[in-house]
Structure formats: structure tokens, C-alpha cells
Amino acid sequence: MPTDDEVVETAAKAAEDVVFSRFDIGEIEDIDVTVTFEDGVLDVAVYVNAPDARLDEGRVADDAALAARAAVDDLFGD
């Protein structure tokens, strides 16, 4: 059984990996990945500000949050 810290770290890394795989580092003005895991409940929030990028920041943030949840599911073996 993974620890709460392992869950948070796994989710945060997965979310960041998605964001940084879609945007060039120079395009990102701000990124915030907030992950909590309390009482078995995972909460992931991703914010990306990349105003000069061609991609939809909101869509990438949503994809990053989904990837974070999937990574945690994999961590638990679901």
C-alpha cells in the first residue's frame, strides 16, 4: 500500500510530465499543480498560464489532471 506522500508525488509528477511534454518551457509563464490525498480521496488541480502557446491551456490542464489520477490508479494496481 503506497503512502500518502507517494500518492501525492506520483500524481504531481504525472501532471507536470503532461504539461511539460506539451509546452516548451519558455511558453509557460506560470504552472501550479496542487495534489492532496486525505482519507483515501485524491484531489488534483492543475493551472497553466502559457498565453503565447498555440495549445489550449485549460485542455492541457485537464489532461494533466486526468493523467495524475491514472498514475495513482496504476500505483494502487487498479
Rank of each mutant, 00 (worst) to 15 (best):
39 D>V: 04
8 V>W: 03
62 D>W: 15
40 G>M: 14
41 V>S: 03
27 E>Y: 08
23 F>E: 09
33 V>Y: 07
78 D>N: 11
13 K>W: 02
53 A>R: 04
48 V>N: 07
15 A>L: 13
72 V>Y: 01
35 V>F: 10
70 A>I: 05
15 A>N: 10
28 I>G: 10
26 G>C: 06
21 S>F: 07
77 G>E: 00
15 A>I: 12
29 E>C: 14
50 A>G: 08
42 L>V: 06
8 V>A: 04
67 A>I: 12
21 S>K: 13
4 D>P: 03
8 V>M: 08
19 V>C: 11
16 E>F: 05
2 P>K: 00
24 D>L: 09
8 V>G: 06
68 A>D: 07
64 A>P: 12
6 E>G: 00
67 A>H: 06
66 L>R: 14
38 E>T: 15
26 G>S: 05
52 D>H: 06
58 G>E: 07
6 E>H: 03
16 E>S: 14
4 D>E: 12
2 P>R: 02
43 D>K: 15
74 D>N: 12
34 T>L: 13
27 E>C: 09
47 Y>P: 06
18 V>E: 09
10 T>M: 02
28 I>V: 08
52 D>W: 03
76 F>T: 00
16 E>C: 04
4 D>Q: 11
57 E>R: 07
44 V>G: 11
22 R>F: 00
31 I>G: 08
55 L>S: 05
54 R>D: 02
1 M>V: 02
65 A>H: 09
24 D>P: 05
20 F>A: 07
67 A>V: 11
35 V>W: 08
45 A>R: 15
26 G>Q: 10
25 I>V: 10
39 D>N: 14
29 E>P: 13
16 E>D: 11
38 E>A: 15
20 F>S: 05
2 P>I: 01
67 A>S: 11
14 A>R: 05
10 T>Q: 04
76 F>E: 00
50 A>Y: 06
31 I>M: 14
69 R>I: 09
52 D>G: 11
33 V>D: 05
57 E>G: 08
45 A>W: 10
23 F>P: 13
20 F>Y: 12
22 R>N: 04
70 A>R: 06
43 D>H: 15
63 D>I: 14
11 A>E: 04
50 A>C: 11
10 T>C: 03
25 I>C: 02
61 A>W: 10
77 G>F: 00
73 D>E: 15
5 D>K: 02
8 V>E: 01
49 N>Q: 11
75 L>V: 00
40 G>A: 13
7 V>K: 01
33 V>E: 05
75 L>D: 00
25 I>M: 05
53 A>Y: 01
15 A>H: 08
78 D>E: 11
30 D>F: 14
57 E>V: 12
42 L>A: 06
29 E>H: 09
63 D>C: 13
